[in-house]
Every structure is written in structure tokens, then in C-alpha cells.
Write a protein that binds this DNA or RNA. Structure first.
Lengths: 107, 107
DNA sequence: TAAAATACCTAGCATAACAAAGCATTGTTA
DNA sequence: TAACAATGCTTTGTTATGCTAGGTATTTTA
């Protein structure tokens, strides 16, 4: 899979996951693999820096949490700003996708 | 429009245009704008280097041509290698698109 | 108890689209 | 006819981003 394709979409995917419930990095990697039916196998070196960046931008927030019987994990949750950004970017993705398919259906 | 989204798709779009008939760079820029209904407005500084790169890889070939009554233009045509690459990459795009939408439809 | 899986981190790299410039020619318009 | 817009091609440097490749520590499994 051409990795360039991913650029510009990882943010939306992460924000969309967190829209439902807080999650931690390692868990997201597993979840993306499942949801995408194995297409997306993010490396940790890919995901963690993105999470840090999203937090720096104020789109997500983190907190260390230890549920009983579990090990300590850093949970991320989406912020209000994150939700509105997700909406904008999702619309953008729809438009983009349509445009590409318009061009590719040229015969 | 987030420019990162484009990464990994410009090659396919160009190859797909050239699949039908040879074209020159400036003409492609106009054509992309039309086909995408204004979403893609490539700058020359974007398109020309990509064309050079595709030629270097042997996916397209160029020739200077002057049709009667027209100015000199550098026409590009797709190669056999270009056609097979286009097919591979189109499939890749389909899979990618499906995977993203699978992730984004998670609720 | 050794290995694998979980869970987090970071420095440096490669790639690709873009901004911003330049040059030459052709068409339009005041 | 002179000025300007549009056409047509080129290149240098910037920036963003996912990945490579390394690291640490804990927990589970064979």
C-alpha cells in the first residue's frame, strides 16, 4: 500500500475513533487494523507522534489512567475543537474523494 | 482544500488522463480543473515536476510538437509500463478508499 | 524463565505538493 | 502600437507527514 495516500487522512481517522469514546494509542492501532480489515497497520512510530501533534493543536486531550486489573495507559479524548475540526475535515474528504473519482472516471 | 490529501493520487490522475490521448502540461492543468469541477487547481510548480518524474520512471514519454497554427507544446503520452502501473495504482486507490470509509463509518 | 506481547517514546529520513521565482511567446485591449 | 493578460515550460527551496529504527518498561504466555 502506497503510504503517501494516507497523508491527510490519519487525523480524521483518529478523531473519528475518539468521537465515540476515549482510547489509548496502542489500542487505536489494533482498532484501525480491525476496522480497515487489515489495510491499516500503523507503526507506533507513526501513531504516537500524530497523537502528540493533535494534542498540541488542542484537538485531543490525554490523561494517564489505570483501570483495576489493567496496566497504566494514556487515554486520549476528543475536545470541542477536535469535534468541529473533524466535521470540517470529513466534509473536505468527501469533496476530495468525489473530485478524484470524477477525474478517474474520465474516459 | 488540504493539500496533503492529494499525495499519492496525482500520478494516477495524470496517467488516467493520458490513457485516452497525449496531452501537454498546461492543458492538463485546465482539464483537471474542469473534470474536478474546480476542486483541483494545480499550480505549474506542482504539475511539471511530477511530469518530469513520471518520465524519468518510464511511465510516460514526451515529445515537442507544433501543430499548424499552434504554438510549440511538449506532449506527453503514456507508456506500456505506465498503463500497468495505472492499473495497479487504481486498485490500490479503491482499496484505500474503502478502508478509510470503513474506519470513518465507525460509530 | 525466556520469549512474546503490550504500551509508550523520539531522532532522523524520504517524499511530495507547493510557493515563488524566472523566461519566452501569443493574444487582447486601451 | 504599447501595455497587459494568458499561454507554456522550468527550477530552487520550503514544509508537512508518515516511516525507519532505535530505545525503555511492564505484563502475559509458552
Amino acid at each position: 500500500m502506497n503510504k503517501e495516500l494516507l497523508k491527510g487522512t490519519t487525523d480524521i481517522m483518529i478523531l473519528n475513533l475518539l468521537k465515540k469514546e476515549p482510547m489509548y494509542g496502542y489500542g487505536m492501532i489494533k482498532e484501525f487494523a480491525i476496522l480497515s480489515k487489515g489495510t491499516f497497520k500503523f507503526k507506533e512510530g507513526t501513531l504516537y507522534p500524530i497523537l502528540h501533534n493533535l494534542e498540541k493543536k488542542g484537538l485531543i486531550e490525554s490523561l494517564w489512567k489505570q483501570n483495576p486489573g489493567e496496566r497504566k495507559r494514556k487515554y486520549y479524548q476528543i475536545t470541542k475543537k477536535g469535534i468541529s475540526t473533524l466535521e470540517e475535515r470529513s466534509t473536505e474528504w468527501e469533496i476530495f474523494q468525489q473530485a478524484i473519482n470524477d477525474v478517474l472516471s474520465y474516459e
